[in-house]
């Protein structure tokens, strides 16, 4: 097995994220400040404190709770529904169900993802009797919705692949041997030939979910509710503090900003977001390479 930079790089990043997520389980939630607000890095607070005095490092680690679980939910929804739809459309394209599915998927794919998610979320929250009770589980609902928004893409890519293999000779041969369509589809086509494709899609979904969750948490209303941390809402907190002082390039200057801890509050979550998304994309690239070699 040849060593792949994308695979190792992406894999390590995501593994690190997963490790942080596990660690987060053991972190005492909402450690309340012992030192002053916006303190710089110290031995007690490795990355300093935020505007309210909470330990920044712990908050950054805890933020993984906001997207790892829900991100996996997004992957599950996208893969499950996408596979069902894609396999149907690819294997029996002339069946009326496939035609309906194709229409639905086309409609779904015409929407910008964020628009779709925000609209669906708005409807959902308007529909439940007590929106605030849903607040902690909101990210999981978000995950499901993001997964849903990816179904057309997954189904599209998969149906092309399935249709290609459907036409291959071995399908007729397998049928002659008495294998049912389901077995052919499940084992020979999907598992044998579509595995990497689906894994690649899963990585893209995960990366996209992080982006959506971070953006919405940054904005405030639909993301992770305070006081629970998310890289998005940490950035939002920091923004008010830093922009007020004219930006890092403004009056306070880099040194002051670093000393006050505001710089870290901006840089660390940003790097974490970029690194995780890049890791997910790198892993997706790895699966794409493996897929192409097959």
């Amino acid at each position: 097995m040849r060593w792949s930079a994308a695979g190792v790089g992406g894999g390590s990043v995501l593994f690190a994220v997963l490790a942080l997520r596990v660690w987060a389980v053991f972190i005492d939630p909402d450690p309340w400040p012992s030192d002053g607000a916006m303190g710089g890095p110290s031995s007690a607070h490795w990355l300093g404190t935020d505007a309210v005095g909470r330990d920044l490092f712990l908050r950054v680690v805890e933020s993984t709770e906001a997207f790892v679980g829900p991100g996996l939910v997004a992957c599950a929804v996208a893969l499950l529904l996408g596979t069902l739809a894609g396999a149907a459309v690819g294997y029996v394209p002339d069946h009326p169900v496939s035609k309906v599915l194709r229409g639905v998927l086309t409609l779904l794919s015409a929407w910008p993802r964020l628009v779709l998610v925000v609209v669906l979320l708005a409807v959902f929250l308007a529909g439940v009797s007590d929106p605030s009770a849903w607040a902690p589980a909101r990210v999981y609902v978000l995950g499901a919705l993001v997964g849903l928004s990816f179904v057309p893409q997954v189904a599209g890519v998969l149906s092309e692949r399935v249709a290609h293999f459907r036409r291959a000779r071995f399908v007729d041969a397998a049928r002659a041997h008495g294998l049912t369509d389901v077995a052919i589809l499940g084992r020979h086509i999907l598992w044998a030939n579509c595995r990497q494709l689906l894994l690649r899609q899963a990585c893209s979904v995960f990366g996209a979910f992080l982006l959506v969750e971070t953006s919405l948490s940054y904005l405030g209303d639909y993301g992770v509710p305070e006081p629970r941390p998310s890289w998005g809402n940490i950035l939002a907190d920091m923004r008010s503090a830093v922009v007020r002082s004219g930006g890092i390039a403004g009056d306070s200057g880099w040194v002051e900003a670093a000393r006050s801890g505001g710089l870290l509050g901006v840089v660390v979550p940003s790097l974490a977001i970029v690194a995780t998304i890049a890791g997910a994309l790198a892993l997706a690239e790895y699966f794409a390479q493996r897929d192409a070699e097959a």
Binding site: S215, Y218, L235, V243, I248, V274, A278
Partner: peptide, 20 residues
């Protein structure tokens, strides 16, 4: 490509915060 990978939201944030 690295720059292009960065989510728009983050680039906006950087523009706001870093470049003022």
């Amino acid at each position: 490509h690295g720059l292009s990978l960065v989510p728009v939201f983050l680039l906006g944030y950087v523009a706001l915060v870093v470049f003022g």
